[in-house]
Structure formats: C-alpha cells, structure tokens
Nucleic acid binder design. Structure first.
Length: 199
DNA sequence: GCGCCGATTGGCT
DNA sequence: GCCAATCGGCGCC
C-alpha cells in the first residue's frame, strides 16, 4: 500500500482502511486480520487527539511524524493501541485500528490472547494489538518497512456498507461521528447502535 | 514533587 | 452494569 494513501484527511483514510488486510510478522509468526472498525482523530484541532493544540511529548512524538508512520501508545498502563499517522507531517492526525476479523494465524492469536471465543481475539484496540504482537517497538516506524503492514483491500467487488458512529471511550468531542464500522460485522468491538451511511 | 486522569479490558455483581 | 488494574504525561503546588 502506497504511503500517499495516508496523505489525506484521517476520516477518509479511516473509511478506506475498512476491508484492508493487516499482516503481522512478529517473533517469526504470521498473523493477519481484515480491518472492520476504525476511528479517526483529526490532529491538533481535535480535543480528543493526543496532539491537541500541538501538545507534543515523549509518548506522542510519532503522532507528529510523516503520514504512514505507526503511532503506538500504552493505554491505561496495560494495553497497546495502534494508529497510522495521516495527512501532513505535524498535523498529528491519525486513524486508530479498533477491530479486525481474524484471517490468518488464529492459533497464534489464541495463544497470545488466551480467550475462549474467537470473536474476542481482535475486537478492540488493545485486543488486536495483543493478538498481532503489536507493541511500542512499532512506534515511529514507517508502516511499509515495519513488521506489521497494511497490504491490500480484498477485491470482493461489492462496495462495503459502512456504519458511522460516535467515538468510543473518550470524554472530549466524543460525539463527533468519526468511528467507522463494516455494517453488521460480528467482529467489531462492543455492541452499539449504528447508523449506516454507505450503500 | 505529587496527584489525577486516560483513544481499555476482563472479571465480578 | 460496575470497577480495579497499572503506567506515563501533565497540571499544579
């Protein structure tokens, strides 16, 4: 996938990442999942963004990097969350990967996650990072040259039906409709009401 | 230097 | 549905 793909508004990238495949080659093991849920963070103008008002620190430095860069941070001291930086360098816009449909290496994911149900493998930003072995080691790396890559949109022909909802788990500007889900996907996180805006 | 808070999750009520 | 776990950044004293 071309880096220029990410040189566009985060809400557009968030939509277009739906249906793409994320392939991880961490610790010599391959795992992969199809993106079914994303969230857009618009950068220094977005009160919910880690880069709001150009606030820059050790944790979020990668967020201010060039488009196509991984931004991975520790959430609540426990879970990793993976973002792909969008738009111009310094804008601090990004897309958070929120859920995947497990596609390959499910045995590896099950070992890493230790959950009973496969639907719990990748249905959340922290969960998918654990399943794919994503940690801070990816932070700041250009995605195409990293152990975890976004490869392609699966050419299944039919246009995706995309649901658009408020963002989850935040307190500022949470109502902005910047969460995108493949409508009806059983692999998305949580169970919430959706507004379908796509075909 | 200290205390609070978070783009979460999983276990318990 | 509620809440603890757990860490680093940040605001404030």
């Amino acid at each position: 996938m071309s880096l220029t793909f990410f040189d566009r508004p985060a809400e557009i990238v968030a939509r277009e990442l739906l249906g793409t495949l994320v392939v991880s080659s961490v610790d010599g093991e391959t795992t992969a999942g199809r993106v079914v849920e994303t969230e857009a963070y618009l950068g220094y103008d977005d009160p919910a963004s880690h880069g709001y008002r150009h606030r820059r620190n050790q944790r979020n430095a990668a967020l201010f990097g060039p488009p196509g860069t991984w931004y991975v941070y520790l959430s609540y001291g426990i879970h990793w969350c993976a973002n792909l930086v969008c738009e111009a360098e310094g804008k601090a816009a990004a897309v958070l990967l929120r859920a995947l449909e497990p596609v390959e290496g499910l045995d590896v994911m099950r070992r890493r996650r230790r959950v009973a149900a496969d639907r719990d493998l990748c249905s959340g930003p922290g969960r998918l990072c654990q399943a794919l072995g994503i940690t801070r080691s990816l932070d700041g790396l250009p995605m195409p040259q990293s152990p975890v890559v976004v490869v392609f949109r699966q050419a299944d022909g039919a246009p995706l039906s995309v649901a658009e909802t408020p963002r989850i788990g935040i307190t500022k500007a949470a109502k902005w409709p910047l969460r995108f889900v493949i409508a009806g996907s059983p692999w998305a996180s949580g169970k919430r009401s959706w507004v379908v805006t796509g075909p």
